[in-house]
């Protein structure tokens, strides 16, 4: 790992101002992706601004019909939260399947979505549940947040503060893990929301996307059989040594059906 300066911020504001003063700084949330990346020298920031001291970024609360999760809330906390279990059990289940127990004890929702790994789980929740990402500057709608591979709508000096999830009538997440990394080869979040049925797919494409044909079908008949005969196009889906685009397309259908059945 290259040398860098470590700065621990006591608040979100301090974190933003500390980062602004660094030539090439990065926020350090749980560090579950950033630190391994730095070990491989694939990232060499000169400053890490640790968000671990910004207590206002941690926590889970109900705000009317929304469940608001602070950016520095760990996956383990989300997975074990009674509040999340009662409001959006699918979100707790999703969090309980990220990485492994030790990763879940450190990794955070803010870090995960800001990193925007195409195979991460949380993007499916954010988009599938039509969440709003709240930053130090603004609120960003889920459909606008994820842009491309490891690319979000966040500006360089923008910090995710919390994610606000409208509580759906029903939701479920099903994941087909990569057998080696356990990231999602395909993960599908299906939800009946106030805006209708949403089906968000992670792992399959360069970034999380909505399967609109599935949404339409489920909008008329919310049952797994409604998806019979439907498929997403394999065009533009990811292809690697673990799964072809065609296999991923199949898995999108299978995981979507299983998610509907699990709702």
């Amino acid at each position: 790992m290259e040398a860098f300066n470590y700065r621990k911020a006591g608040s979100a504001d301090e974190a933003v101002s500390t980062l602004a003063s660094a030539a090439d700084g990065k926020f350090l949330a749980g560090g579950m992706t950033l630190l391994p990346t730095m070990k491989q020298m694939l990232a060499t920031p000169d400053t890490l601004v640790d968000l671990g001291g910004a207590s206002e970024l941690v926590g889970i609360s109900r705000d009317g019909d929304n469940l608001v999760i602070g950016a520095m809330t760990t996956h383990a906390t989300v997975a074990g939260s009674a509040e999340v279990h009662s409001a959006i059990p699918a979100l707790a289940a999703l969090a309980s399947g990220i990485g492994d127990p030790m990763v879940r004890n450190r990794g955070t929702i803010g870090g995960s979505i800001a990193n925007a790994d195409p195979a991460a789980d949380y993007p499916a929740a954010v988009v599938g549940l039509n969440a709003t990402v709240n930053t130090n500057k603004r609120s960003i709608a889920a459909d606008e947040f994820f842009v491309d591979v490891f690319e979000t709508a966040l500006a360089d000096d923008e910090l995710v503060v919390s994610v606000s999830f409208p509580i759906p009538a029903k939701a479920a997440y099903q994941k087909f893990p990569n057998p080696a990394s356990r990231y999602a080869v395909v993960g599908v979040m299906v939800a009946q929301t106030g805006d209708g049925v949403r089906v968000a797919v992670t792992g399959a494409g360069p970034s999380v996307f909505r399967a609109s044909s599935f949404e339409d079908a489920l909008g008329g008949n919310f049952s797994a059989s409604a998806l019979d005969g439907l498929s997403v196009s394999a065009d533009n889906l990811n292809e690697d040594i673990h799964a072809s685009a065609a296999y991923r397309a199949n898995l999108v259908g299978v995981m979507a059906k299983r998610a509907v059945a699990a709702c």
Binding site: G31, P36, D100, M102, V103, R106
Partner: peptide
């Protein structure tokens, strides 16, 4: 950060000590 041989407990929870800075 996958093999877990470095697992320790920090403040009562299991973490991978290879994926945490000493200063943290």
């Amino acid at each position: 950060s996958q093999c877990g041989a470095c697992t320790i407990h920090v403040d009562g929870v299991a973490v991978k000590s290879c994926t945490m800075l000493a200063v943290q």
